[in-house]
Amino acid sequence: MAILVWDYLQEYAEERDDILDAVEQVFRSGRLIFGESGQGFERAFAAYHGVPHCIGVDNGTNAIKLALQALGVGPGDEVITVSNTAAPTVVAIDARGARPVFVDVRDSDYLMDTDQVAAAITSRTRCLLPVHLYGQCVAMDPLLELAERHGLVVLEDCAQSHGARHHGRIAGTMGDAAAFSFYPTKVLGAYGDGGAMLTADDIVQHRMRRLRYYGMQERYYVVETPGHNSRLDEVQAEILRRKLCRLDDYIAARRAVAQRYAEGLADTELGLPTLGPGNDHVYYLYVVRHPRRDEILAALESYGISLNVSYRWPVHTMSGFAHLGYRPGSLPVTERLADEIFSLPMYPSLPRETQDRVINALRDVLDRYPADGAVRVERLSNPT
């Protein structure tokens, strides 16, 4: 059987009765838009994070875009972020008419290099947008200090960090606002698209609620500020509300898989994930590194293992953002990582025997493709 980097079918088999009951509950409720399921999930997600306000939206990209708008970021403003991220982070900035400004990432944990942010701030900078990537948090204290000193807002991109902590503080509670995605692959994933914004600011949350509902708040057809149609679907909200009760279990299962990978691959030439100072990792992805990445990925296909690269093309190298003017070599760490990193299968229901197949196949392939480029005799064994 082929091994994929992500699969939900085993989890669905285990949770099927609850998922289908969630759908039935919504369909029988008599309220398919802005009903109790959406409101209930918002209350529960806010409570999980210890903040007063959660605003559900239709996807994570719009969560970033609307949060930026609610924070006052717009045309002509600059937003400092990273290029080693999923493109939607930057697409959302561009959708506001703002200009993304990239800083490089750290070679150790692939997260924003906060030491580079001060030099990137200009008179047009309005927002710092750290991406809590792969399941752990950016070092936030330097960013919060810079934001206070320069009068900037901080928006956390938490699409990959549900439940992650930094020095005890949970992702999504350290900036002025936070944006989450509930795309099915996420640590807390829906059965379709979904997103949310968090904030402790009463004024900002009122703006967010208006913006996700055409610009209306109290009365239908009365637009206070032109907005969008960006509501979280009731069915997805009810599924998420129920899955939220299992989020800590999902995280524990991911950490157990990560521990087995770490133990099984510790004595190889594979670069394994490094934990940032003060971080509690939730392992949305288990990202490893090797200078002969593409040869290794091709060889793994013969074992029935298909893996992903997050991310093979840094955003600043994409043709859609050529107008930003970044040239090859402008973000050297990001660009080097793009040639070396790849992700191992990671999801809570990943069977133990599948983990063993991945570890054994990798060990076999790594013997044939050493980092120094030397040719070695191919093993005859085939991992099972």
Results as ranks from 00 to 15, higher is better:
Cys127Asn: 04
Ala171Ile: 07
Leu240Ile: 02
Tyr110Met: 14
Leu344Asp: 05
Ala178Pro: 00
Val131Gln: 00
Asp7Ser: 15
Val79Asn: 00
Glu335Met: 09
Asp356Ile: 09
Val223Cys: 05
Ile93Glu: 01
Ala266Gly: 07
Asp364Ser: 11
Arg124Thr: 09
Leu297Ala: 07
Ile305Pro: 00
Thr185Asp: 00
Arg246Glu: 10
Phe102His: 05
Thr173Asp: 02
Tyr221Leu: 14
Ser381Trp: 13
Arg368Lys: 06
Pro348Ser: 11
Pro75Trp: 09
Gly325Phe: 14
Asp339Pro: 00
Gly56Trp: 06
Thr274Phe: 07
Arg169Asn: 05
Ile55Arg: 06
Ala298Arg: 10
Ser310His: 15
Tyr261Gln: 01
Tyr369Arg: 00
Leu143Phe: 08
Arg260Ile: 04
Gly194Gln: 04
Ser108Cys: 12
Phe34Trp: 10
Val375Tyr: 07
Asp107His: 13
Ser181Phe: 06
Ala119Met: 05
Asp18Thr: 15
Met112Ser: 12
His281Cys: 12
Leu71Val: 02
Val26Gln: 00
Asp193Ile: 11
Asp94Arg: 15
Leu111Lys: 04
His316Gln: 06
Ala266His: 14
Tyr284Lys: 04
Gly97Thr: 09
Gly325Cys: 12
Gln136Gly: 02
Leu344Lys: 04
Ser302Arg: 12
Tyr221Asp: 14
Pro184Gly: 03
Glu335Asp: 06
Arg99Val: 15
His132Pro: 03
Ala256Lys: 06
Leu337Ile: 11
Gly304Met: 04
Val309Phe: 00
Glu335Phe: 05
Val51Arg: 02
Ala190Leu: 03
Asp280Ser: 07
Asp201Phe: 01
Leu198Trp: 01
Ala139Trp: 02
Cys137Leu: 13
Pro277Lys: 03
Tyr221Met: 14
Leu380Pro: 00
Ala47Pro: 02
Leu270Ile: 10
Ala266Val: 13
Ser181Asn: 01
Tyr48Cys: 07
Tyr214Trp: 12
Pro383Ala: 08
Gly40Glu: 02
Pro345Trp: 09
Asn382Gly: 13
Arg368Val: 13
Asn62Tyr: 14
Tyr311Phe: 15
Ile93Lys: 04
Arg336Met: 09
Leu143Arg: 04
Gly151Phe: 07
Leu366Gly: 03
Gly192Pro: 02
Gly227Glu: 07
Ala196Ile: 03
Thr384Ala: 14
Leu32Gln: 08
Gly276Arg: 11
Gln69Lys: 13
Leu144Ala: 06
Ile121Thr: 09
Arg231Ile: 15
Val282Tyr: 02
Gln39Val: 12
Leu71Glu: 03
Lys243Leu: 11
Leu331Gln: 10
Asp267Phe: 10
Gly276Gln: 04
Val153Trp: 04
Leu198Gln: 03
Leu297Pro: 01
Val103Thr: 06
His228Arg: 08
Gly271Cys: 04
Tyr134Ile: 13
Asp294Phe: 09
Ala67Val: 06
Val23Lys: 10
Arg219Ser: 12
Gly215Gln: 02
Ala171Pro: 00
Glu238Pro: 01
Gly74Leu: 14
Leu9Cys: 09
Gln69Phe: 05
Met112Ala: 08
Tyr191Phe: 14
Gly35Ile: 08
Gly373Cys: 01
